[in-house]
Amino acid sequence: MRYCTRQDIGQAIPEMTLLQLSNDDPAAEQPNESVIEEAVRQAEELVDGYLRGRYVLPLDPVPTVLRDAVVYLARHWLYQRRPEGAVPDAVKDSRKDTIKLLETIRDGVVTLGMPSGQAAPEPGEVKVRSRSQQFGDDLWGRY
């Protein structure tokens, strides 16, 4: 499930700026949708990396805080792909704040309010070995 839509990106970045950030052709009249999709994909994978092990992925429904996080990360990626232009301080700050937020979610300080509310273990098998019990309840009861 996608964390954000193209419309979410369009609301965060003005269309003219999005055209300049995403399209390498100076004569282009439309933003390059494949570049925008790549920015969103990378942002979603980064968010999933922080959430994996704490929540069962994919999340359904997607909390709005994650939608905003993906938009901020994708916006930063789009600005960063233009080395000739400086990344605005607001874009840098929103990325730093988003990473801090993802770290607090990962560490359990902030929860997403998902229906389970429980940390989900990584999928996989766990094997445990132990020695047989040497002292039973009857022996411990005599002490």
Rank of each mutant, 00 (worst) to 15 (best):
R95L: 12
P63M: 04
R129N: 10
L51P: 08
I36A: 00
E122L: 04
P63Q: 12
P83E: 13
T98M: 02
V47A: 00
M1G: 15
V62G: 07
V56P: 09
V71E: 00
V62C: 11
Q7T: 11
P115Y: 02
L18H: 08
G141T: 13
I36W: 02
D138G: 14
K100P: 10
V56M: 11
P83V: 10
R131S: 07
Y55H: 09
D93L: 12
S22G: 05
R2N: 13
T5A: 14
P63F: 14
V109T: 12
Q30G: 04
V56E: 04
E15L: 04
H76A: 11
D93K: 13
P88V: 02
R54K: 06
A86H: 11
P83I: 14
Q80Y: 13
G117N: 11
V109A: 11
R95T: 08
E122Q: 14
P14C: 02
D68P: 00
T17G: 14
Q42S: 12
R131I: 01
V110N: 14
V65Y: 01
I13A: 01
S116V: 12
T17S: 01
G108T: 05
E33Q: 10
E125G: 09
S116Y: 15
S34F: 04
P121A: 02
L112F: 02
D107A: 12
D93R: 15
T17A: 05
K100V: 15
D25L: 15
P115T: 07
Y3Q: 09
A27D: 15
K92W: 15
T5C: 03
R2P: 09
L46H: 10
E103Y: 11
T17H: 05
A27I: 14
